[in-house]
Design a protein around this nucleic acid. Structure first.
Length: 572
RNA sequence: GCGCCCGUAGCUCAGCUGGAUAGAGCAUCAGUUUCCGGAACUGAGGGUCACAGGUUCGAAUCCUGUCGGGCGUACCA
């Protein structure tokens, strides 16, 4: 297995720690220097150890320096300041590491030693409602997390837990019947259904008889009335095809789309089992789980209403068990907004007492707000449709593209605009720490400067262009590297970190770390591009080396963007 | 009331388990093209890291408190 210079250094310092420090210090052994004057990497262990040993930190640092004198892959290290030890990799060491990286099809991303079966539950739109901006974060984040877990070797199951069952169907069915079951145009069916619901809902508010009629329709549906079931299926199928067209545009796929309705058969038994095991009990006429944890003490988990109906919690419990029993899931990941934190704490705690052996994670994200800092709505008070958002992204990308490239044909421009626009949209969401709320802004979501997808795409396109010009076809094999200039070495060190960065992202499910890294790579490549001529570097080893750097940079960018669910272009 | 999250440059955000002079982009100002794609590069200005204590060689980061904002808190999902 390949080992990067940084990992090699970590081992070396760790050896010294094991031999000379009775109490190994907590924290990282080595870390990158933020100031290039200090070298490539630094270790602060001497200062941490000095505290425990009550010795002079510089003395301890000197011991580490002496220990490292004989290592052949670094320059002799130095003690600096209060007790930092600064390391610089030998040029040769970086060159060898780059050659190995170039041969590694996974670019330093190593598969997990004990892969797991992991279910990623994300997106989850509601039937008969438009997908809106609120769904974008779950969809894009979930997709990226699933991609990253897969590349790490896990068995990933993507499940779209759509909201296809609930009280809204009473009103929908009533309204649909009252209008004489009209046919909807395929493309506008979601808008029609949403309008139908709103109109019927208002009518019910004003007229108690209508409300009762709606309840009656709901009851009939739940009891399996054939006509109502058929109407419900019609709504569901039409909604699904609308969702599918969005997912296709976003290049997002699912292994399963088991909606809430799928779990109806297990709702009763779930409640019964939890009651039998005394995990749930009756309270105020409803069935409830109480908790002992301080955090949840005052927050009972309602699993059956006083009228006997099931709830969100019931479905989630049944779903969880199904995933463990049928799919042998060892880990469950739920990607939803942060308002559901309490719900998932309750769910996970209940599942544990129920005996479900599975690791559960709630990956939550902040809200998308309007300019008034309140949940985003259009002027009419409706959420912004995801479909419109995608359209606008592509249109804006196309306008900018045509401004720069008036020579493009319509079809070419359209396709490039699709990749750039959708990429920019995804990247804007993924590049920000997911826990933060953010204010929706067209210019921000579709920004093409700075830390954005178009900037990364441009760097990638440059690598491809230069390789085309050099008439290099396919992969460069057995690449050798001569890293003479600072910019070459800096780029090399950055590329060698790729695998480590992917690991960091996996740890906390924070794709924005990968975005930040890729931005650094792109930025470093642009600098390399300015300062290190490639095609004009003669015909010898140096030119070959710089071409290899282009190849490697392009590979890392493409690989990283793929993990974010962003497509690349060969030209733009 | 209690719980979770947030407060860093004019704006939008990074800042990893505490490390050396707190970083990017946008905006502003000043430069770079006989040269591999200028969607680029180089430089400048701009900060009491909300506030106050504490922990220590060292704090934007950890602890306590205060202020400000968002969200959640039993029959919606």
């Amino acid at each position: 297995m390949n080992i990067t210079p940084a990992q090699q250094l970590t081992r070396l310092v760790q050896e010294w720690i094991d031999q000379y420090l009775p109490q190994p210090p907590s924290g990282s052994v080595v870390q990158p220097c933020n100031d290039p004057r200090f070298g490539h990497y630094q270790s602060n262990v001497a200062m941490a150890a000095a505290k425990v040993l009550k010795k002079n930190p510089r003395e301890i640092a000197t011991s580490l320096v002496e220990y490292c004198q004989t290592a052949d892959f670094i320059e002799p290290p130095e003690v600096a300041g209060p007790g930092f030890v600064n390391f610089t990799f030998k040029q040769e060491c970086l060159e060898i590491a780059c050659s190995r990286l170039a041969e590694d099809t996974n670019l330093g991303v190593t598969p997990e030693e004990s892969p797991k079966t992991i279910v990623v539950d994300f997106s989850a739109p509601n039937v008969a409602k438009e997908m809106h901006v609120g769904h974008i974060r779950s969809t894009i984040l979930g997709d990226s997390i699933a991609r990253i877990l897969k590349i790490k070797g896990h068995h990933v199951i993507r499940d779209n837990h759509i909201g296809d069952w609930g009280t809204q169907f009473g009103k929908l069915i009533l309204g649909y019947k009252e209008r004489g079951k009209p046919e909807f145009p395929e493309s506008e069916s979601l808008a029609m259904m949403q309008e139908l619901y709103q109109a019927t809902h208002q009518a019910c508010e004003a007229d108690a008889n209508k409300l009762n009629a709606a309840r009656e329709e709901l009851k009939k549906l739940q009891e399996g009335d054939e006509e109502n079931l058929e109407i419900w299926k019609f709504f569901r199928d039409r909604s699904q095809s609308a969702f599918d067209s969005i997912y296709q545009r976003l290049n997002v796929t699912f292994d399963h789309t088991l909606g809430e309705s799928f779990f109806n058969p297990w709702l009763k038994s779930t409640v019964e089992e939890l009651s039998q095991k005394s995990i749930a009990q009756e309270s105020e006429g409803a069935k409830v789980v109480f908790f002992e944890e301080d955090e949840l003490k005052d927050h009972p988990f309602l699993i059956e209403k006083s009228d006997g109906a099931a709830l969100y919690a019931t479905t989630d419990l049944a779903t969880l068990k199904y995933r463990v029993d049928e799919w042998k899931a060892q880990q469950l990941i739920y990607v939803t907004d942060g308002r559901q934190q309490l719900h998932f704490k309750q769910l996970f705690s209940t599942a544990g007492r129920w005996g479900q052996e599975v690791d559960c994670y709630h990956i939550w994200f902040g809200a998308i707000l309007g300019e008034n800092k309140k949940p985003l709505k259009t002027r009419e008070g409706n959420p912004i449709r995801l479909k419109d958002l995608l359209d606008e992204a592509e249109q804006r990308a196309k306008a900018i593209l045509l401004e720069k490239r008036s020579d493009l044909k319509e079809a070419e421009a359209q396709e490039m605009a699709r990749v750039i626009g959708i990429g920019a949209l995804k990247y804007a969401d993924l590049s920000q720490n997911r826990n933060l709320d953010y204010v929706f802004d067209w210019n921000k979501l579709l920004a093409f400067d700075g830390n954005t997808a178009p900037y990364l795409l441009n760097a990638y396109v440059r690598t491809r262009s230069i390789l085309r010009k050099a008439e290099v076809t396919g992969e460069i094999t057995g690449a050798s590297f001569h890293l003479e200039l600072p910019h070459e070495q800096a780029l090399a060190r950055l590329l060698l970190e790729y695998g480590t960065v992917v690991d960091q992202v996996t740890k906390e499910y924070r794709p924005h770390l990968l975005c930040g890294y890729l931005y650094e790579v792109a930025s470093m490549f642009h600098k390399f591009f300015e300062h290190c001529p490639v095609l004009k570097a003669g015909t010898g080893a140096l030119k070959q080396s710089r071409l290899s750097m282009c190849q490697l940079t392009g590979d890392v960018l493409k690989h990283g963007l793929e993990l974010l669910g962003i497509e690349t272009l060969e030209m733009m």
